[in-house]
Design a binder for these strands. Structure first.
Lengths: 335, 335
DNA sequence: AAGCGCTATGAAAACGCTTGCATAGACAAC
DNA sequence: GTTGTCTATGCAAGCGTTTTCATAGCGCTT
């Protein structure tokens, strides 16, 4: 028995139109009448029904956030940044994850049926044609986080990973020009990994020393995998001056621990650097040199972009680029 | 120009009632007719409008999750567990955080106006009367995570922290009977801290050695705070056999690092244990002895409870207790 | 052939809101 | 006194569903 607009109208002795006008602050309502209505609203504890309203207005004030996986600090920070901004702007946030096997099965169903959300933010770490077509058919304001969906109109928030990765490799080559630099990435098709790898290759090439075939390997971003992989190889790596550039901090930590387990010293015997600047980077010993990615800013920026489009549907597609920043700590021996 | 049920009906040459029946798989629809309707639905890419449906059904299939703060792994795991279960059961999840200053300003507005969500899950780390009254006025199926809201009917998911904390303190006293055991908690009113502290006091009392006044201190769960606090004291602590029991892993890591910075060895010179078994516990050196809290299970269990109530509103209030588990690693020297 | 019980379908009434249109009343201008 | 202009309000349509009730058609029984 929730109270409806009609109850309010009756109590205030006006028609529902007037109540509605008071609610929406449109048209002119006589000051006295408005007072009466407001009093009735308070007395009854009336709250407009979202569905009825949504049915008329064709908007829900709900924003959808679709992430590839809700694991780990990276995603939790994005959610946090997005959530804060969402509330600030008076919206609500629907969160959902699309796991790999789900693979774009339906990015949309993840975020509700027709009309549930006014717009969505999608982060795709690997692009598949199914994701693309699913998104293309959506006809919803769309913000893509850290990636691109070719052929579908959207705004985007990207992080300038290449700049950070370049800065990293340059720094490594500056401080230890003779080191071999190994690259350990995530999955081969992972967009972040591709960006970072590309920057790595470019800088090495610039210096006239493109990586050898087995200098680059693709794992899966996990600590354990990196630990296991590195365990069998750290001693061999350490035979000559080597730096391992891992594509995220988790794997970097795995390599560090593998090295330590093999009684090597980091950075003296082996240098290791990571990416993302997650909490982990500060907790390993030695602490990790890494590239800071503005995680919660990404979420906030995406929400802002989405809201901007909602209030101005015709605006041109916008791409916001967030800077990354090299953070030098001890694990690379570079200071 | 979204396609409506009427478009489908027209195309299939039936009335909207029939389409609706096909959609909801109720009553009997002739097999041929059903085929025709389904074909029309596919062809048109029809998706029912959530609002119209919600208006009739008075349910949205959206579940609200309100957390005190979206920081860190603890919360991200809860979200993850909840999200997975939510999708599994065919619902959607609205996430929101209520920050401290927000303090129950309106737990509900965090989660939308009247009718937006079918039920909510709330985690409150500190109970205020505002939160209570805000929740009491809601008249929504409610699941409380790790806490209690007296006077408001609800289901709950709690973790048996006392058991874990007890097991921890018992283990400490078993392996190092003569150690002084210090307790470093979060905020004094924090419910988790209170539980853990109570267990700590009880076990010590059982052993006839209640803690001295300055054996217990309340900080704020943060690494830095614990690091700073411990930095000035580790040397003094280490003068006699001491174990520090921190109420979460972050603070434990802070203490460990403070000790190491002071050239102490852990666990030889100072023992440190944590709580939660977050990622951190495995990444510090030495790795932390801690108590595992089933974080993602909490989220999943809460969703399950909420859905159970939705489908059976009259069921008696249920409380699900999740076990915690002592995880012995190196930081306590206990194995 | 009349009546009955089924099955499959349609018509129409909600659900709670917004909003275009109509209008009543007040006042001013002629 | 008639007409016009405003302001404040009410009426009612319509948003896209679900669902109750009515009913058409069919085959059976009597």
């Amino acid at each position: 028995m929730p109270v409806s607009i009609e109850d309010v109208a009756r109590r205030a002795g006006v028609s529902i139109s007037t109540v509605s006008r008071v609610l929406n602050r449109r048209n002119i309502v006589n000051a006295d009448t408005r007072k009466r209505v407001e009093k009735a609203i308070d007395a009854l504890g009336y709250r407009p029904n979202v569905f009825a309203r949504g049915l008329m207005l064709r908007r829900s004030n709900i924003l959808g956030l679709v992430l590839p996986d809700l694991h780990g600090e990276f995603y939790s920070e994005i959610i946090r940044g997005a959530n804060t901004k969402t509330r600030e702007l008076g919206y609500h946030m629907l969160v959902s994850s699309v796991t790999a096997d789900d693979d774009g099965h339906d990015v949309l169903s993840a975020v509700g049926t027709q009309g549930l959300v006014d717009g969505i933010i999608v982060m795709v770490t690997e692009m598949s044609s199914r994701i693309r077509s699913s998104l293309a058919g959506a006809d919803l304001p769309l913000v893509v986080l850290d990636g691109d969906v070719p052929g579908v109109k959207h705004d985007s928030v990207v992080i300038d990973q290449q700049q950070g990765a370049e800065a990293m490799v340059r720094h490594l080559l500056d401080t230890a020009p003779d080191d071999r630099v190994l690259f350990i990435g995530g999955h081969e098709m992972n967009l972040d990994t591709r960006d970072r790898l590309e920057a790595y290759r470019r800088v090495l090439a610039e210096h006239g020393r493109p990586p050898a075939g087995d200098d680059v390997v693709h794992l899966d971003y996990r600590y354990e995998t990196a630990f296991n992989y590195a365990s069998g190889r750290v001693l061999q790596w350490a035979e000559r001056p080597t730096t391992v550039f891992a594509a995220n901090d988790e794997m970097a930590a795995g390599v560090v621990d593998a090295a330590i387990a093999a009684t090597l010293r980091v950075p003296e015997d082996l240098k290791v650097v990571g990416f993302d600047d997650t909490r982990i980077a500060q907790l390993t010993r030695p602490r990790l040199t890494t590239v800071r990615v503005p995680k919660s800013d990404m979420g906030a920026a995406a929400i802002e972009l989405l809201c901007a489009r909602l209030s101005e549907p015709k605006r041109p597609s916008t791409k916001v680029t967030l800077e990354t920043e090299l953070v030098v700590r001890e694990s690379c021996g570079g200071r």
